[in-house]
Design a protein around this nucleic acid. Structure first.
Lengths: 356, 356
DNA sequence: CTGAAAGCGCTTACAG
DNA sequence: CTGAAAGCGCTTACAG
């Protein structure tokens, strides 16, 4: 503790002004680096703020400056095929309800998960607003890279959530470690099947290949079993590009014909309910089915125990944490971590109710 | 929307004062129910605040009233036998860092988990401070009931966390559904063992019988298997009152002798590492061991996969959420739910890193 | 480059 | 019972 420091009282700009022999206006100028201050007084004031460990009062600050903070959020719209993208909205609302006092505004820009161009056009709209920060779910790798570059040029800071892009200047990534989530799925599979079983790895709608998030899950799953030399589990990969019921069923039927001792199926994304539907209608027994995301489509099959486990990406928390992180960075000017990896929740019929 | 309402502008007490033809001081009096206002003006002001849907500015309010908010938190001290109670401190710090702007102070009162009297004496100290709210981990059922009663008398509101007490006037309970967590453990056990297996249910240090939290876990576990008529799993209960290595080993050895086809062990609390140590030193294979809590003692055995699954009570989040709830109630005067049931996290070697 | 003053929305004595 | 004024800690023009 410095000898200048008075333990009891809270340090204000008034105290600093007094000690430096200047007005509070001048103190404010150096604290916010607004220039127009002589080097000498600046140094003096800086020294005092350091010595007293001055912490600005955020309440007073936001009250006085009626300035609003504006974030933009670019993410997919929830489509009829998967309701996954409904969830982040809850996280946005929650963050907003906590931070509304600070005048935070958030504008959503929703693109179509099947249309790269809509991603780009929404991103352009978002950047045109010149928000204080942009939150991006970068579903399209190449296009998101472009957007990141433009943000760099325009000096708009950005945070990625749900999936990440390497080699960009994002403030932070908030989401799941995809490779590790594949490992978790594999562990659960391993735990529940006998030796000498066959396991199917299904990638549905692989046109999302662009998104390496999903690819990494598969890699993680395979990696786990590669390390289990003592177990004899055969992995079979099946990519299905169509989502029509007929195509999916045909592909699955064929796989079962070719590999009669399939005991487990791992679906690398939230489309696992397609496989569940197949298993139900074909009345196949003793299959350990594991997939991702607590969507409206998947939950009924988890409840019926046709899906054994769903891995939860915490979409609500992803959005929430991304916003809180943005707020810490922009408003509170705090340091924030480069990466926030959220837990990989293992969800089964019995603990589902607490994650919904 | 009312016709008095101006959509753009934020409603302040100034607006209300103007519309009511009174001073802002009077408006403040009715908003905070401080009396000294005639019924007529009070009614008029109330009507206007309703009509305009006036929301006080919490920032300005806490800035102007330099009043501090004071919470007390009564919980067990972390002992050498289990480090579980270290975790809530992290949650307390986190909540504090978010709410320090609002002048929140928290005083901790730590009792010994093996001494009812220390619980009572700490509770007395806490109540003597007359905090705005008390957060209580009610480990001792009867004693906590007494404390709740005194709080009622003294009109100090209280919140329970970690475990709950029925029939008290707590503002809220934040924690896990114990019965359901037993069900989750059973599901995991069921998934990983063959038919005709024997499963041991171990209650260690059952002097905590007072705490029905642990009893309910056991009930949940048993309840799950009762509903699984198609499975032939024999459950064997084993209560061990001592924590000395010798006693624990002897009891376990005997159980194994009597029931040679034990395939799984469920330990109803965080002392599961005692059983793990036994299994390791006796070199027993193919045991599915499941227990509770990511303590320093348990984690190494989860990593070695001697413990297959740990159910996480989220002790960090319990404390955090309890404080945030208290803050919402006391400072923001919001309605808060009577019960916040946190997810029952299933933790295994592969997703451990994200929960630590 | 620097200071004095008004104001953000609310609270708190104080005077009447 | 009611109002006028000072103040919380900071920001923002404005004047010099």
């Amino acid at each position: 503790m410095n000898d200048l420091e008075m333990p009891g009282k809270k340090i204000t700009i008034k105290d600093i002004a007094q000690l430096a022999g200047v007005s509070i206006g001048t103190v404010d100028r150096v604290i916010h680096n607004r220039g127009e201050v002589s080097g000498k007084t600046k140094a003096k004031i800086l020294k005092i703020t350091k010595a007293l460990n001055y912490q600005p009062d955020v309440l007073a600050s936001t009250l006085a400056s009626k300035k609003n903070v504006k974030f933009a959020i670019i993410m997919p719209a929830a489509d009829s095929e998967s309701t996954f993208w409904k969830s982040p909205n809850i996280g946005i609302e929650k963050a907003l309800s906590e931070l509304e006092y600070f005048g935070l505004k958030i504008t959503k820009y929703l693109f179509s998960i099947t249309d790269k161009h809509s991603f780009l056009s929404e991103a352009e709209k978002a950047m045109a607003e010149i928000p204080d920060l942009i939150l991006i779910a970068p579903s399209f790798h190449k296009e998101a890279m472009e957007v990141a570059e433009i943000c760099d040029e325009k000096q708009i800071p950005y945070i990625f959530f749900n999936s990440n892009l390497p080699d960009t200047n994002q403030i932070c990534y908030v989401g799941q470690d995809a490779l590790q989530s594949g490992m978790v799925a594999a562990k659960l599979m391993d735990y529940g099947i006998k030796n000498d079983s066959e396991v199917l790895i299904v990638s549905l709608l692989s046109l999302l290949k662009n998104n390496n998030h999903i690819l990494k899950r598969k890699q993680g799953f395979i990696k786990y079993f590669e390390s289990k030399k003592d177990r004899n589990i055969k992995l079979i990969c099946l990519d299905i590009d169509s989502l029509s019921v007929g195509d999916v069923y045909n592909e699955l039927r064929e796989a079962f014909k070719k590999n009669p001792s399939i005991n487990g199926i791992f679906v690398t994304n939230s489309r696992v309910f397609h496989v569940a539907r197949f298993i139900e209608s074909e009345k196949i027994c003793n299959i350990n089915l594991i997939g991702f995301d607590l969507t409206e489509e998947n939950i009924p099959y988890l409840e019926k125990e046709i899906i054994k486990f769903l891995l939860n990406q915490k979409p609500v928390e992803q959005a929430y944490r991304a916003i809180i992180t943005a707020f810490n960075k922009i408003v509170l000017r705090r340091e924030v971590p480069k990466e926030i990896l959220l837990p990989i929740d293992i969800v089964t019929k019995e603990n589902l109710m607490y994650y919904e």
